[in-house]
Design a protein around this nucleic acid. Sequence first.
DNA 1: CTCGCGTCTTGACCCAGGTCAGTGCGACGA
DNA 2: TCGTCGCACTGACCTGGGTCAAGACGCGAG
Lengths: 213, 213
Amino acid sequence: MDKCALRDLHVLVEHVGPIPAGTHIFRAGDRFDAIAAVRSGTVKTSRVDREGREQVLGFYLPGEIIGLSAIHRGCYPCNAIALDSVQLCRFSFPKIAILASRLPGLQKKLFDLLSRDIGYAERLSGDHTADERIAAFLVDLSRRLAARGFSASRFHLTMPRTDIASHLRLAPETVSRVLRRFKDEGRIGLRRREVELKDPAGLASLAERMLTT
Amino acid sequence: MDKCALRDLHVLVEHVGPIPAGTHIFRAGDRFDAIAAVRSGTVKTSRVDREGREQVLGFYLPGEIIGLSAIHRGCYPCNAIALDSVQLCRFSFPKIAILASRLPGLQKKLFDLLSRDIGYAERLSGDHTADERIAAFLVDLSRRLAARGFSASRFHLTMPRTDIASHLRLAPETVSRVLRRFKDEGRIGLRRREVELKDPAGLASLAERMLTT
DNA sequence: CTCGCGTCTTGACCCAGGTCAGTGCGACGA
DNA sequence: TCGTCGCACTGACCTGGGTCAAGACGCGAG
């Protein structure tokens, strides 16, 4: 995004938070009026099917944008829930869309973010083993944290195992077992929700089929 | 899209085709310079992993747009292949992006299409049984064909079983078996690639968990 | 300190769907 | 008319990961 876009954005930003863990930021069906950038903390998005089973669609780290998939229906298609204490920057969507018309850099950035999310969802939908999914989850998280200046090798999982499982389309028990085996094999260090990637290259090669392309 | 946008689009459209079945329209890695609307025929998009296994990402019917997921990397992330004789309208992306800046209706339409594709990929990635996947595939196809003025209840599958299987993350054998059972149960008529939906309501209720939300 | 609760782990068992190995059956060319 | 070639179908068997049922482990409240 160019300098010009960033300067103009200040006029339509609304800082929100801190929002405590467990709070809904928006709910499926709410009228869509804004996207938001995570400033601190972690947000999960999920939908709940008729039978009440939750499906976690994604986790959003500081610097990442939530709400984009709501554009085409005018209301949010999923819930967004704070996993820990969260601070956001809200951008009114009508205003940002108008601004994007004047700023090609901003328009490009929005197309870019949307297009990236398609790729992410497509990767998840591939048929992959539990090992591949979990390795890819760890490697992806590590890279995204590193991109924001956090440690790539040691980090805290802000989400419970059930959410990881739901996001990867696995049973929570499977997540436990695979993490356990990765630990036994010396690929990771693990204590409760603290993770250390001891063999990033090995994990990346396991994750390769999922993360590549 | 508003009238004004449609009129201006004429200046940057390039009609392409007929392209014979089996031809690559673009390949993964090709420089991204255009999106295209399918005018007639069917296009599949797919990626091929390191081990040479093809994963079908989507099927595109007349009226639908291919190439959007390429925006964020500047090159196509997948192959697009004609399944039968195909005619396209190509839109230069740089030009259409500039035009979108001047036409809020067009910008909205592009955001909309991107956002819709995210929803589609997310649905596919859910954990669903083979029955749900195949019912959802048939119902979705029927609806999209109907939206373009084709029969909703009788249609021709332009893709081989292996492509359907790959797209739904199933084995081709499973596709065969489930279609067979749907036929035995009187839900569909099936002969080779000709399908008739005999019980659209029943299929829709099977597909519900996948198509809803 | 310890009680209680929510999260996580572990083990035993089971099944949907994958894999393998043939068999059918049009479509098309000679 | 007959090969033959490539999808499509079917049956027998196998397995990754889901399910069920106990525990174990922290952690906060009192």
